[in-house]
Write a protein that binds this DNA or RNA. Structure first.
Lengths: 159, 159
DNA sequence: GGCAGTGACTGCGCAGGGCAGTGACTGCCT
DNA sequence: AGGCAGTCACTGCCCTGCGCAGTCACTGCC
């Protein structure tokens, strides 16, 4: 049987949460092996992606308070994942910089997944890659937007 | 400029962790609105996907101990997300069943993401959908496998 | 019919994160 | 120039989710 377009779409929609769940779990496991938290690893990804170096902004992207982020940074410095540096332009602020120290270790742990991703992507043609890339980047934006615009309507909690 | 195959592939590989991170954060936010934990929601997904109904197996898939899962189940019952039922075949075991009670609420909160996913997938042709679906399902398997086979080699922790 | 193995469940401790308050610093607005 | 609200990172205090290890019930193998 050849699945039609609609079937493929619904199947993909169902596979998505499962994929995200298992991948997030893999991240957590990698973090565990490195002796750090999943949050620290998530932050490290943001730093390496060059998304931001501002504590407040990073805290927002990580979905946590600035207070919690302060202690997250403490841990990340302790674990040699990142470091604080003063912001010359504004003496209240500071910039967060990723450290290269443990990148080799990280790469080693990520290796099996990286290999899988590499192999899979190599099999796709340009149109397929474009679709996947669009889905990922626009999905990221949609997720961030949706997170901020979540309705408060949920008084219906049974308690 | 038209990006070539390799550029597309590396871009996708970079976009992946970001996507997973933001999506996981969205899940956590949805959970927060429902007054439950992200773990409870993750478990609920597994239950609805029909992945398993065994506490031990679910605990494994969620990356936690059976003891912690017992209390997770307690909370899920309290929050009307799932219920325990005895296993007629083995009186030590029990089966976990998802409850429909709060599905409407869940669907409402997921709506913006579901809409995005629906729209995006509708634009893709069959080949693109196939690629995406393969990537998701095989990626799930790869993540689960990789999680279990993580090397212990990480003595290099600076401590 | 005994016994190791497996299932779910409980005390205890720990750690990550929220909340609210603090002090340093900025830049706007008279 | 100078005061003042706003912003930034940081600190108790608390709450909660989870791991660990031990417990009891039950199974099936020998």
């Amino acid at each position: 049987m050849v699945p039609d377009q609609r079937e493929l779409a619904t199947a993909a929609a169902l596979a998505l949460p499962r994929f995200v769940g298992s991948t997030a779990l893999f991240h957590a496991a990698v973090a565990g092996r490195m002796g750090v938290t999943a949050t620290e690893l998530h932050c490290l990804h943001l730093l390496h992606g060059g998304v931001s170096d501002s504590p407040t902004e990073l805290a927002r992207l990580l979905g946590m308070s600035t207070g919690a982020f302060t202690r997250l940074l403490d841990r990340m410095e302790q674990h040699r994942l990142a470091e604080r540096a003063p912001d010359p332009a504004d003496r209240r602020r500071l910039v967060v910089r990723p450290l290269p120290d443990r990148m080799a270790e990280l790469a080693e742990l990520y290796a099996p997944m990286a290999r899988f991703v590499g192999e899979r992507l190599a099999r796709f043609d340009r149109r397929q890659l474009t679709a996947l890339l669009e889905f990922l980047t626009d999905g990221t934006a949609a997720a961030e937007r949706s997170t901020e615009q979540l309705p408060d309507v949920t008084q219906a909690i049974t308690r």
